[in-house]
Design a protein around this nucleic acid. Structure first.
Lengths: 139, 139
DNA sequence: TTCGGTGCAAAATGTTTGCACACAC
DNA sequence: GTGTGTGCAAACATTTTGCACCGAA
């Protein structure tokens, strides 16, 4: 499972990587580098904070994790399960491309705070012009 | 105009504040503290980077500016003109509340980069349960 | 055995703060 | 005159990097 993910991504399966990804997998909500680091240290697991950062960056590059910016500008990470997507649609040729990740999820907490609403759902649809049609327009 | 904004917010109208806000007003897109600082320095205008940061924070607190987090986690600011809004609607009583600011705007650049699309528009609608209806549900 | 990964310490980046002085009101 | 705002330097938080060593394949 995790081992396969690493293999597929061309990454070595090291102890540190494994436990970092495991921690994120088990967490219900996005976690920061510090979160992971502190948790692991409290469990007497030897790992360096730099390693956590490097691991998060690598896994994000490989699209195994999703990087989310919190309101204060710091980063949190979660498993990229692609389960919930939005799309951008070309207004010329009607082709659609999925956006990776749902940008609304990360906003929900702030919206709850500022409006008092419990957020239960949303619709988000982007419109635009795809690169091919942009080329044609230029001519 | 700017003077009135300051007065209404209970802020003194200082040279530094004035030029910072002016710069943001004249800019078409969100600007960072560094952007403003460098621009002003290049125009031989004496100002301290701390002052820029403090000014941005004060004006954001007073809702004169809107703080936007860029993809790298750094902050940019723009005039809060309330011209473009989205709403969250209560699925129980159908009341609507505007969200301040448009969260999609800040995403557009990233979306352009990752999809190749030129983003021309979007719809975003949140659904939820308002605080009053949440109260009723509890009972 | 070979590279990619890790630990450590140090640096880089973006932002905030304490303090003395300056200036708008 | 009073208190808010500013400049400066130093601190701070988060994240990145250089280098020597380590360990998975």
């Amino acid at each position: 499972m995790i081992e396969d993910l690493f293999k597929k991504a061309g990454l070595k399966n090291t102890r540190q990587r494994y436990i970092v990804l495991k921690k994120i997998e088990l967490s219900k909500e996005p976690v920061t580098a510090e979160d992971i680091f502190r948790q692991l240290v409290s469990e007497d697991c030897k790992i360096n904070l730099s390693t956590v950062y490097r691991t998060l960056n690598v896994l994000t590059d490989k699209n195994i994790l999703l990087k989310i910016l919190k309101g204060d500008g710091t980063a949190a990470y979660e498993i990229n399960n692609l389960s919930h997507n939005h799309y951008i649609t070309c207004s010329v040729c009607s082709s659609s491309v999925p956006l990776d990740g749902c940008p609304v999820r990360e906003l929900s907490e702030n919206i709850s705070k500022s409006t008092g609403f419990k957020v239960t759902g949303h619709t988000l649809q982007l419109m635009g012009i795809c690169s091919k049609c942009l080329e044609k327009v230029k001519k």
